[in-house]
């Protein structure tokens, strides 16, 4: 059983069971701290009954005007904690904060097209493919390896779901900056 609460810097001493998983990106400390300093309510952790980390989600808000939205930077769940609904719980917390606290129009995320399990999960949460981002993922920040699916979910403020409509289905990474 888990408690979803705000992530704290001190949690970084206790998240190896999540981060040592091969598919979880471990960032530089500054990266985590910058999120904590800017969007503390969008960086959440799922903690088990015994206090150990089960997964976490880093998010932010960005954009102007109708592009004002929540963004999922990282969502990860420890291997032994999968299939428990934690992904949904963590996503819910971001969507709720994006909607109620920040009054955003939509939430978006990037995912590798090869990560079929994750795509299916996001579709199940109501996300749709908005566009394809060319050569978004790179090895060591240099060699492009894979495109990204930019997926979106409209929030209550976007009554007509205009944020899901685009004329351009394929864009470059530079065009995704808000």
């Amino acid at each position: 059983m888990s408690t979803i609460r705000r992530f704290r810097a001190m949690d970084m001493f206790n998240f190896n069971n999540v981060n040592l998983d091969l598919f979880t990106e471990t960032y530089d400390i500054s990266f985590y701290l910058s999120y904590l300093a800017q969007w503390p309510d969008l960086f959440t952790i799922a903690e088990s009954a015994d206090g150990s980390s089960m997964g976490y989600m880093m998010g932010k808000v960005e954009g102007r005007g109708k592009d004002w939205h929540g963004h999922v930077t990282a969502l990860t769940v420890a291997p032994e904690c999968r299939r428990l609904g934690l992904g949904r719980g963590l996503m819910d917390s971001l969507e709720e904060a994006s909607e109620k606290t920040y009054d955003c129009y939509f939430v978006d995320l990037f995912v590798r097209p090869s990560n079929k399990v994750a795509i299916a999960m996001y579709e199940n949460f109501g996300y749709v493919l908005y566009r394809e981002v060319l050569e978004y993922y790179m090895t060591d920040g240099v060699m492009p390896t894979e495109n990204a699916h930019d997926m979106r979910k409209a929030l209550a403020r976007d009554v007509d779901k205009k944020s899901l409509v685009t004329n351009r289905r394929i864009v470059t990474p530079a065009e995704t900056h808000f």
């Binding site: 970084m12 040592l20 471990t26 960032y27 530089d28 400390i29």
Partner: peptide, 10 residues
């Protein structure tokens, strides 16, 4: 292993 940053501590 995916060791970086804080995991030095462990």
């Amino acid at each position: 292993l995916n060791i970086k940053n804080i995991q030095f501590d462990t």
